[in-house]
Design a protein around this nucleic acid. Structure first.
Ligand code: SF4
Ligand code: SF4
Lengths: 133, 133
DNA sequence: TTAAAACTGGACTAATATAGTCGTATTTAA
DNA sequence: TTAAATACGACTATATTAGTCCAGTTTTAA
């Protein structure tokens, strides 16, 4: 029910490492090697973080990644939304609500579930990636 | 990353309904019908809740379920643990740690992840099933 | 006594989400 | 021109969740 995906864990490990390296440019290979994270998977994640403007990248020889902003400006909430795509704690609270819950009309717990979501969001918004160091 | 399973949602709907019926005995069929919840699945869930001492049951004709204790004495945390089995937010925090994370030794975020888990647990412990009414 | 209404229990399948892999293209410094 | 790196898309494998099926047992009431 509450579970960090490997993508999020690998993101945190990578961001932490890149942050500690200050302005040095870090490659996917380096992080993959240090932490035994599958290279292809980590590479995908870093590409995604770049596309989401959390990292900036340089291609080619001597290329790699560095932070686009300090980690205390990135909330866990933001990281999760950007890596996994924004999503609600239940079907009917997804923003892109293509698949409406087949129970929706008769459901008696929509309101309290909604409140619950807000409380969880609040916790994740106030937790910064820098707290994972 | 933070997602209620259908089992939990169906549990909440059912517990709410049974609670509102006061001391009347409620059948799986009745709840299934009112809320369009797949009967076999709901039946399994109620059986589990009975086994976990949240419900008490009567078999046979006119049988059914009622609460073994009021909903304000059951935390969301307890419900989740009993329905889904207790589990950590990441592999290495599972209590029955059969499968150790293959990154464990080199992992740099174990401690902060642990703290995060405590904060989430705290939220879920202070949320009672009665809050979902 | 028997039939129907309910719970019980286990195995099974289907659907979905997560994790990881592969191949190929592009960029760039040396 | 080559090697080291990011970039992208499709693919496969694995795990989890959701739902189904079937064969019981218990109990009440006709
Ligand atoms: S309608 Fe009710 S059961 Fe369906 S997803 Fe929303 S809260 Fe859950
Ligand atoms: S060891 Fe690190 S990567 Fe592995 S499960 Fe624990 S926190 Fe996550």
């Amino acid at each position: 029910m509450v579970r960090f995906s490997k993508k999020i864990e690998y993101s945190l490990i990578a961001l932490r490492y890149i942050s500690n390296a200050k302005d040095e440019i870090i490659t996917a290979k380096e992080i993959s090697g240090k932490y035994n994270i599958p290279y292809e998977l980590l590479a995908k994640i870093l590409q995604k973080l770049k596309k989401e403007n959390i990292l900036v990248s340089n291609q080619g020889v001597n290329g790699g990644y560095k932070l686009s902003k300090p980690l205390n400006e990135i909330s866990l909430s933001e990281l999760i939304d950007k890596i996994e795509g924004k999503s609600g704690i239940v079907e009917c609270l997804h923003t892109d609500n293509l698949t409406e819950c087949f129970i929706y009309d008769s459901c008696s717990i929509k309101d309290p579930i909604n409140k619950m979501q807000l409380e969880l969001e609040n916790l994740l918004k106030n937790k910064m990636v820098s707290d994972f160091i």
